[in-house]
């Protein structure tokens, strides 16, 4: 972990190339944090009901509600932000605009602001997340110890998080300006960490490296890299080497010994040798490729966590396993 980390992270923003497992990792991280007894809120901003899917429940309404219980009794609450409702909320909060808000909606202004002008939409989404991070109850206790956001993909993340800077620049003064500044303060604080999910493949790793550079250039706090869907390495270096040297006869004998048929030319075991060696060769190539990508990730100098590929996909049970794994690897910071 970075040396200046005196405050624990309270806002975890999970990004990554499309399809690498952002939603899955965000959900697992939320579960892991809750398992440490932290009151945790999991936020979704893309309006795709991804959280409902990973937790195998029906569509979530725009309200914070309990979605899972972590081992040890902690709970995860979830919120799927609906940008339209968030805008009305926001207008209401700042301007008490009950009726005028509805009029705006009739005119399509809300549509305009939330779908066509993503900048404004992003202001609302980041604003809502920061509001949850800062929220306190009447007695002055924080509503949440940790907020995890299933964020937009790497290609859009810097722009998404920095939108408030842009807005502040456009608005220059006034309430929008003030709100934008307040959100940027949270996002750039040491309480926030942007995590990047990747696979050990060229494009996701390249996007991760580029994304980290962009985030750093924008002064946004980068957290960790999560390498997802790691496939098991089934042959070690020595094996791969002897496979590469094609020790056909010895392999045929061993296969035959294991009861897979005759080792002579044309025998059942013998006929397995070529295809099995071909598979080993492919495996070796993949291992090599993965090693290269891993080295690339290592140059970033970030804490790195790994999650295995779960063969049949991630069901609810699998999600708890992934959460457990993140926790054991120390991603929740429980070890400090």
């Amino acid at each position: 972990m970075s040396p200046q980390q005196s405050t624990p992270t309270r806002l975890h923003i999970v990004t990554g190339k499309g399809g690498t497992g952002k939603t899955t990792v965000a959900a697992a991280l939320a579960l892991a944090l809750a398992a440490e007894g932290r009151r945790t809120l999991l936020i979704e901003v893309e309006g795709r009901q991804g959280i409902a899917q990973v937790f195998e429940t029906g569509a979530l309404p725009y309200e914070e509600r309990k979605i899972a219980v972590a081992p040890g009794g902690g709970e995860v609450r979830a919120l799927a932000i609906d940008p339209e409702l968030a805008l009305l909320d926001y207008l209401d909060m700042f301007y008490k605009l009950g009726r005028a808000g509805r009029a705006l909606k009739k005119l399509g202004a809300i549509d305009f602001a939330t779908t066509v002008a993503p900048g404004l939409r992003d202001v609302l989404l980041t604003g809502k997340a920061c509001e949850a991070v800062r929220r306190k109850d009447n007695a002055g206790w924080r509503a949440y110890d940790a907020v995890v956001m299933d964020a937009p993909p790497t290609g859009r993340i810097t722009r998404f998080l920095n939108v408030n800077d842009e807005v502040a620049g456009l608005a220059r003064i006034g309430p929008i300006y003030n709100q934008a500044q307040a959100v940027m303060r949270v996002l750039k604080s040491t309480e926030t960490a942007v995590h990047l999910v990747t696979l050990l493949e060229e494009m996701p790793v390249q996007e991760t490296v580029d994304g980290v550079a962009e985030l750093r250039a924008a002064g946004l706090p980068v957290g960790a890299v999560v390498v997802n869907m790691l496939r098991p390495v089934l042959l070690d270096d020595a094996d791969l080497e002897s496979a590469a040297n094609g020790r056909r006869t010895a392999v045929a004998k061993a296969l035959s010994q294991a009861g897979l048929g005759g080792a002579r030319k044309g025998g059942q075991a013998e006929r397995l040798v070529d295809p099995l060696l071909a598979q080993a060769h492919e495996h070796a190539q993949r291992v090599l490729l993965e090693r290269r990508e891993r080295a690339e990730i290592a140059t970033l100098g970030l804490p790195t966590y790994e999650l295995e590929l779960r063969g049949e996909g991630v069901d609810l049970g699998g999600l708890y396993r992934l959460a457990d794994s993140l926790r054991k690897q120390g991603m929740t910071g429980g070890e400090s």
């Binding site: 089934l234 042959l235 070690d236 020595a238 094996d239 002897s242 496979a243 020790r247 010895a250 392999v251 004998k253 061993a254 296969l255 010994q257 294991a258 295809p275 099995l276 060696l277 598979q279 080993a280 495996h283």
Partner: peptide, 13 residues
């Protein structure tokens, strides 16, 4: 070693 290699190949398969 050749048994170990064969076993690895089989697991991979």
């Amino acid at each position: 070693p050749e048994q170990r290699l064969a076993a690895g190949l089989l697991r991979l398969h």
